Simulated scan of single mutants.
Amino acid sequence: MSHDERLPRNRTYLMCPPEHFTVEYAINPWMDTKVAVDAGRALTQWEMLRTTLTGLGHQVHVLDARPGLPDMVYSANGAFSVDGTVYGARFKYPQRAAEAAAHQAFYTSSFAWRYVEPQQVNEGEGDFAYLPGAYGGLVLAGYGFRTDPAAHAEAQEVLGRPVISLKLVDPAFYHLDTALAALDDRHVTYYPDAFSPASQRVLAQLFPDALLADREDAEAFGLNLVSDGRHVILNTEATGMARKVSAAGYLPMPVDLSELKRGGGSVKCAVAELRA
């Protein structure tokens, strides 16, 4: 990865406060129902993440939390938007199913978006990433644990952008956004062993200059990051990842999200990007 000037680009995001956040069921290896969540601390940490983003000049819309949906704080999973078109989510687990309607209501309340309801199971930006500067606009899509691979073809028809299917093989990294992140419009970072050997070859072909992470980075949720092209917001535990992005010319901005990690998510899970 070359070290040319890393320039930030103003972004628009959607977040949902963890007002009802608990770990009352386990649908990924990180969730432990026996350890209580500190609700006040979770809200404080979330607010710090939000103010970090707004402090960088980004716009953050806030989706109202709904009772009975403790995972709504992971707003990245609710939809995936490209060029003003929104491909809605359809969650694998019934515990999260109603989140999709809350996100749909947000998009359909505004004339700015064309919302398309999905037929296939997919979990929004949890399993989709977009790189507008790569190959004219490229969607990377994960499958293996949550999103049905048939959703990748459906997303391509909805969005009119090429979609590259990548197979996730490690249950610890059950969503694409735990194993891969866009650092800017053209560059990615990822943990190779989270993917099948064939998907590793695909990524190496598409992104020969990618920033490669190791298992320690991935287990610290260091790939579950948000970047504006210059500033890389990632959780404080991911010290090794912070050093790597810094060496690559980006500016790491650590935020403590230890409570949200109890539910199997970190910075990126809590932040959906709105691409008009």
Rank of each mutant, 00 (worst) to 15 (best):
E273N: 03
Q119M: 11
Y130T: 04
E237C: 13
T147A: 15
P18R: 10
I27G: 04
H231S: 12
A26C: 10
P208L: 00
G55E: 00
Y115T: 13
L69W: 07
A76F: 00
L56C: 12
G55V: 09
D64I: 08
Q104C: 08
S266H: 01
A129Y: 12
A36Y: 04
N77W: 05
S227V: 01
Y74C: 12
A172R: 11
V163H: 09
E5I: 14
V23M: 03
V163Q: 02
P208D: 01
E24V: 15
Q205W: 11
E117W: 12
T44M: 15
A238I: 04
G263E: 00
P17R: 01
R230A: 11
P171L: 04
L257P: 05
R9Q: 10
A89Y: 05
R9L: 13
M72K: 15
D184T: 04
D184F: 00
Q95H: 05
P70E: 07
P94K: 09
C269H: 05
T189Y: 01
P8D: 03
Y107W: 12
H61P: 01
A105S: 14
K34F: 09
E117M: 11
D148V: 13
A198N: 15
G229C: 01
A248V: 00
S199H: 01
R275Y: 12
L274V: 13
Y87P: 03
F106A: 06
A181W: 02
M15Q: 05
T178C: 09
L212H: 13
P17D: 07
E47L: 11
S165K: 12
Q119E: 12
S165T: 06
E259Y: 01
Y130L: 00
E99I: 03
V271E: 00
N10W: 06
M1N: 11
V169C: 04
N28R: 04
D32I: 07
V163K: 08
Y25G: 12
F195P: 03
P208I: 00
V73R: 14
V163E: 10
L183M: 06
L138D: 14
A112Y: 12
A210R: 10
A153G: 15
S109V: 11
A179F: 02
I164N: 08
Q95R: 02
N224R: 01
P254E: 07
L166M: 02
G144K: 05
G265W: 02
G40H: 00
L223Y: 00
A26Y: 09
V86D: 01
L63R: 11
G142C: 07
D256R: 14
S246I: 13
L138I: 08
H187W: 01
L14D: 02
R243P: 12
G136I: 01
T52V: 07
D71E: 05
Y74K: 11
A65Q: 03
Y25I: 07
F91L: 09
A134R: 14
G40T: 00
F173T: 05
L49V: 08
Q156C: 14
L14I: 02
L43Y: 08
A102P: 11
R215K: 12
Q119V: 15
A150G: 14
D193G: 11
M48C: 11
A210T: 10
P29N: 06
Q120G: 09
D185E: 07
N235I: 02
Y25F: 14
T236W: 06
L140W: 05
I164Y: 04
G55Q: 07
